[in-house]
């Protein structure tokens, strides 16, 4: 029964929110919910996000910048999720990003950013009466797909670091109410700049920048049925190292970028068209360090295609062992 609900709801949580937030820790978040696509189902769609800030943290000092005004990031992403099996999904996301500042002379930048790929595995799922408990592990990689520069923050569209991430997640559902908690560790590869030296807390005579790793904690809770999801999301991104922006300096790719955000996600599975769902989201930044205090709104549409050779009902009956 649970499987069927999940199949219908194309849950691309669509929280590319960290990307949009000051284009720093560019980790898409689609893999981060307690829902699996059923075997041979492919859900994909387009997501648009608009994020902006006029206050940012220079180290821990909150300030504005009259020579930037409001810095905005628009993101259009294509995302997909394929059910290899009911317990193993492969997901990806590819965003196009455009930045702009309303004041000063700095030019906005635009381009394809990083391709993210995840493998999501649900090793355990068990029902206890009205409730269901499930565990997940999610492994991900991300790779820059264009030659954008990471050395023009805050106008750069990303940090250009290859990453590997590993997430552990637990989901608990009681009737139509649920809560999900997860934690990630992100290993970040060094970044290559176009220049041959740079200053962090010392001068580096090289074009390569060592990137501190990062971690993220994500907690979400809300209402979830086969027809719709409404949830609140709290996310905390922590860079494990890096340095603070010095007084009146520009941000740098290996800064200690931290942020905690609170947001809501809404998804609705249309009655008229089977497999089509609409999503909307919004979030605000509660606290941060070396990042903009961004607010984000977004929306998208997703569609499920069933590639099963057999009828769904037969498949469900064979895979549902609960």
């Amino acid at each position: 029964m649970m499987q069927k609900i999940k199949t219908k709801l194309c849950q691309m949580a669509g929280l590319f929110m960290i990307i949009v937030l000051a284009h720093s820790p560019s980790k898409a978040q689609t893999e981060i919910d307690g829902i699996m696509m059923a075997k041979n189902n492919y859900c994909s769609g387009i997501m648009y996000n608009y994020s902006s800030w006029d206050q940012y943290w220079e180290g821990t000092l909150k300030r504005n910048n009259l020579n930037l005004g409001t810095v905005s990031t628009s993101m259009l992403a294509y995302m997909g999720n394929y059910g290899v099996s009911d317990k193993l999904n492969v997901l990806f996301g590819l965003p196009y990003i455009k930045t702009k500042a309303t004041a000063g002379t700095l030019s906005g930048m635009s381009g394809l950013q990083d391709l993210s790929l995840w493998v999501k595995w649900m090793p355990y799922e068990k029902e206890f009466g009205k409730s269901t408990l499930s565990f997940y592990t999610i492994g991900g990689v991300s790779l820059p797909v264009s030659d954008y520069t990471p050395d023009f923050l805050p106008m750069s569209i990303g940090l250009r670091s290859k990453t590997i991430s590993l997430r552990g997640m637990v989901d608990y559902q009681y009737g139509s109410w649920f809560t999900t908690a997860s934690a990630t560790y992100v290993i970040r590869d060094k970044v290559t700049l176009d220049r041959e030296s740079y200053y962090t807390t010392q001068l580096h005579n090289t074009n390569e920048v060592a990137m501190p790793d990062a971690s993220s904690i994500n907690v979400r809770a809300g209402y979830r049925t086969g027809r719709m999801i409404a949830e609140a999301v709290w996310n905390k991104w922590t860079t494990l190292g890096g340095f603070d922006i010095t007084r009146n300096n520009m941000p740098f790719v290996s800064n200690r970028m931290n942020a905690s955000m609170l947001g809501i996600n809404l998804k609705y599975n249309l009655k008229g068209v089977d497999g089509l769902s609409l999503i909307a989201n919004g979030n605000i930044t509660l606290s941060g360090r070396n990042m903009g205090q961004a607010s984000t709104i977004g929306g998208g549409a997703f569609y499920i295609i069933d590639f099963s050779p057999k009828k769904k009902k037969e498949k469900t009956s064979t895979t549902d062992k609960k």
């Binding site: 590869d189 060094k190 041959e196 580096h204 005579n205 090289t206 390569e208 920048v209 060592a210 990137m211």
Partner: peptide
């Protein structure tokens, strides 16, 4: 990749 030596 955490070790980034200087060219000199």
């Amino acid at each position: 990749s955490k070790n980034v030596p200087n060219t000199t």
